[in-house]
Every structure is written in C-alpha cells, then in structure tokens.
Design a protein around this nucleic acid. Structure first.
Lengths: 194, 194
DNA sequence: TTGTACCGAATGAACGTTCAATTAGAAGAC
DNA sequence: GTCTTCTAATTGAACGTTCATTCGGTACAA
C-alpha cells in the first residue's frame, strides 16, 4: 500500500498507463479491470495490491495526470519575462501537452464531467492548484486582467484552449503555430484590461 | 417503435425526463434501467417498447435536448437587430437555458465527452446544426468576426459559456445580469474584428 | 381477433472484488 | 557463503452482485 516502495517493478505505473490508454478508447465503464490487467501485463488481483478499488484507481490516475499537466504548463515559467509572454507560454505549453498526450486530454475531459469529480471533490492535485493559482493571482494583482471574478478566469481561459485542442485532436486538420497564437490572442484580447 | 404515435400516454416523455434527471445525479452508469423505470413510474420492459436499448435511449435523449437547446438559443432571434445584439441574445439565451435546466447542462457535458459521441457521431440534431451554423455564418460572411477557422468559432464561444454556466451551477455564488454581460463581452472582445 | 401498450419476474452475461496458494527476495543466524 | 525465516508481490480461478434485456402473459382498443 505504500506507493514509494514499489516502483521498482513498475507495475503500478503500468496499470496507470494502461488505464489511461484504455479509458481514452473505451471510456470509464467500457474498461473493465480485467481489460486493464491484460493490457498492463498483470493479474487482475495485482491491481488490488496497489489500489483499493476501481474508483480509487481512477481518482489516483486523475491526480497523477494533473501533476504532469502542472509540470508541463509552468515548468519553464520565467518570472523575468513580461507577463503577457508568460501567459502565452502557459497557454502554448498546455496546448502542446494536450496534443502530445491525447490520452490525458480525453481522460481529463471525461473525468471533470463525471460523477467522480462530484463524489471526490477534495481529491485533486494540490501542486496543480498552487501553481495555477499563483500564476493567475499575479496577473490579477498586477492588473493585467479585466476586473472579473478571479475564479472565473481560469475556467474561461481553459474553455477556449480545450475547444482548440479538441478541434485539433478530433478533426484531422492541423493547426499551425500561427493559428494557435491567433487563438491565444482571442483569449488574451478578451481577458486583458482594455 | 414509431415515436409519433405513442405520445398520448406520455410514457415515452416520462422515460426521457427521468433519464435526464437521474443521469445528472448519478451519471450514465450509475443509472440502471430499473432505476429509470421506477422513477418514470413504468415497468422496466416498457422502456424497451419505446427504445431499442439503453444506448439508443441515451442517444435519442441527446438529440431531444439539443433540439430544445436550439429552440431556446435562437427562438427569439431577430434579424433586424444589429448583429452584436443578436450575438448577445444568443449567448444570454443559451446561458439562461443552462441555468434553468441544470439537468440538461450536466447531461450534455457528460455526453459530449463520452464514448457515445464518438460511437454515434452521426447522431445529432440536424435542426441544431442548421440554426447555429446559419447564425455564425452570417457573422463570418459579414465580417463581424476575426479571421479564424469558422469551425473553431462555435467551440471557442461555447467553451467560455460552459465555463460560466458551470461556475454558477457548481458554486453557489450567483451571477448578476451585469456579470453575465461582462463575460459575454470577454468573448465578443476576443472574437470580433478588432 | 388482432395488434398495441404494458407489466415484472426470470435470465444470463459481465464485472468488481476476494482469497487461497505460489513465488521472490530481503534480513538474519550461524 | 549457505540456510532459514518472514514479508511483500503476484497469480487467476471463483464468488456474488448488478444490470441490461427478454419473454410470457394481461388488458384494452380497434
């Protein structure tokens, strides 16, 4: 039950990765534990050595990918840059992470709208919250943003980016770098102090 | 199996409404057919008189609520108004519909990210597509919008509105009419021709 | 008297979870 | 260095439950 001692064999990781891949393809309930076990090259019972239940497996997977996402979004944040540049980097990083990891993208989209998110509202990545909160707070306190409820800012921004990522991943037309910048400009022109 | 002949008793409607209400609360897979039957005051077998399977029930419910949504969004559209006003009405109507029908909102959010949407991509409301498409096309052809891929426009706009509706429905802080206008201004300032 | 609407118990498959048994490997004894 | 012991890791068949779906039957209308 102690995560930190078992990573040697990598089975825990394998289960998480398989779950991610399979859920993208089949959804939460089209993905039985037996399928996860097979895909991960592990016996069904083994999964229960690492996770209490299918529910907690999914919740822990959620936290796990949110940490990865937080790292990707703000890993190279440079506080010396102008805030607008930092914001653009934040957005580009997030977008690229989704495009490079479609399984994460689809998993997250399914999760946030599922009963999981409502049943375990306290289960989230603290790292993610802290990082993103700090980042947006800086923009608010220094008056880069329009005067709206700060709790609305992140979802608004995310809404557009998710729309873009979804567009790219679902359709087969590729965005150029310029297209993406254009989209981020839409967001920026909307939320910046006019 | 013919929809149009059976509405006299209203059982089909009752099943649809119960499904909507229960899925909001418990999600797709936390809502067994037996629960739907009980909630609708109908025998389990009766559902199969109106719907081939649970899957088609949900897909037909999706189409059904999209039609209602289309009606709500553009029911009072007035082509004599300035396009910006029409756009604001479009947004306000959509927002209000979500707030007044949280079950629809949560059902749609779950549906679009579920395997249903991928497994039955052709199953959608034609009415909805036509109306919204026409509405946005007008804005594009008359150069009210920034020059972006038109297929991106609707998702971008929707992303922000969904974020707002979700915020209002999940948290308990109410938006004022002015707050909503402010949010729509964010969208408008982002996508309008600068 | 034929067909449609409806019922609800019965069916059977699918699935999450358990558990008795086996193996691997580390720690300690000598 | 080898033997012993103990615990963690792993297996997969078996269990019990849940659930979508079926079906034989009733009621009523045309």
């Amino acid at each position: 039950m102690n995560v930190q001692l078992e990573d040697n064999s990598g089975k825990r990781e394998a289960v998480l990765n398989s779950t991610l891949a399979l859920i993208k393809e089949h959804g939460f309930h089209g993905t039985p534990m037996s399928m996860i076990a097979k895909h991960a090259g592990v016996a069904a019972g083994t999964i229960y050595h690492y996770f209490d239940s299918k529910d907690t497996l999914i919740v822990e997977l959620y936290i796990h990918v949110k940490e990865r996402l937080a790292g990707a979004m703000l890993g190279n944040d440079n506080k010396d840059l102008p805030y607008k540049d930092r914001f653009f980097n934040f957005m580009i990083n997030q977008y690229n992470f989704y495009i490079e990891h479609p399984d994460v993208f689809f998993f997250l989209e399914q999760y946030v709208n599922s009963p999981f998110a409502k049943n375990y509202p306290e289960k989230d990545s603290q790292l993610f919250k802290d990082k993103v909160h700090t980042f947006f707070n800086y923009g608010i306190e220094n008056a880069y943003f329009r005067n709206i409820d700060p709790r609305l800012l992140a979802p608004t921004v995310k809404g557009t980016l998710v729309a873009a990522a979804n567009f790219q991943l679902s359709q087969y037309s590729a965005f150029s770098k310029e297209d993406l910048i254009e989209i981020i400009n839409i967001v920026w022109d909307g939320i910046k102090r006019q």
